[in-house]
Amino acid sequence: MDDVSAPLPIRPRQLIRDQVFATLAEEIIDGVRPPLEEIRDQDLQAEYGISRTPIREALNRLADLGLIEVSTNRFTRVAPVDLNAQAERVETAVAMIGYCAAKAVPTYTDEQVAAMEAHITGILATDLAWTTNREGLALWYALWAELVLSARNQTMVDILDGRLAMHLTRTVPDQPVADDLEVYMRASLEQLRALLHARDGQGTRALIEQLFLRSVIEPLRAEATAE
Rank of each mutant, 00 (worst) to 15 (best):
D110H: 08
A58F: 09
Y108F: 15
S71A: 13
A114G: 09
A104C: 09
D64S: 08
T132A: 04
T92Y: 08
T126K: 10
V105N: 07
A102L: 03
A87N: 07
A114L: 11
S71Y: 13
N84C: 02
I120H: 13
V105K: 04
E57G: 00
V94D: 13
L67A: 11
R74P: 04
L137C: 02
A87I: 10
P106T: 14
I68T: 09
T76C: 15
Y108N: 04
Y108R: 06
D110M: 06
D110R: 11
L59I: 15
I97L: 07
I68N: 11
K103P: 00
E117D: 15
T107V: 02
L59A: 05
N60Q: 13
V94M: 09
T109Q: 14
A138E: 14
T92L: 15
A63H: 10
L67G: 11
A87W: 04
V70T: 15
L83Y: 07
A101Y: 04
D64H: 03
E88R: 06
L65R: 13
E91I: 07
T107P: 01
E88N: 07
L67K: 14
T92N: 14
Q86R: 03
A129H: 03
E88L: 10
R89W: 01
V78D: 11
H119E: 11
A129N: 03
E135H: 05
G122E: 09
I97C: 06
T131V: 05
Y99I: 01
D127T: 07
V113D: 07
L62R: 12
V81R: 04
L59W: 10
A115D: 07
E135M: 10
L83Q: 08
V81F: 03
G122N: 14
L139E: 05
Y141D: 10
A102P: 00
T107F: 01
N84M: 09
D64R: 08
L83C: 09
A101G: 07
R56V: 14
G136F: 03
R89Q: 05
L83S: 08
A115I: 05
I97F: 05
N73I: 00
S71H: 14
T132D: 02
S71E: 15
G136V: 03
D64E: 11
S71D: 14
T132W: 02
G122R: 15
T92I: 13
I120P: 12
A93M: 14
A79V: 00
R74I: 06
R61A: 15
G122F: 09
A125E: 10
A79T: 00
L128Y: 02
D127I: 01
I55E: 08
I97E: 04
V81P: 02
G98K: 03
V105C: 06
L139I: 11
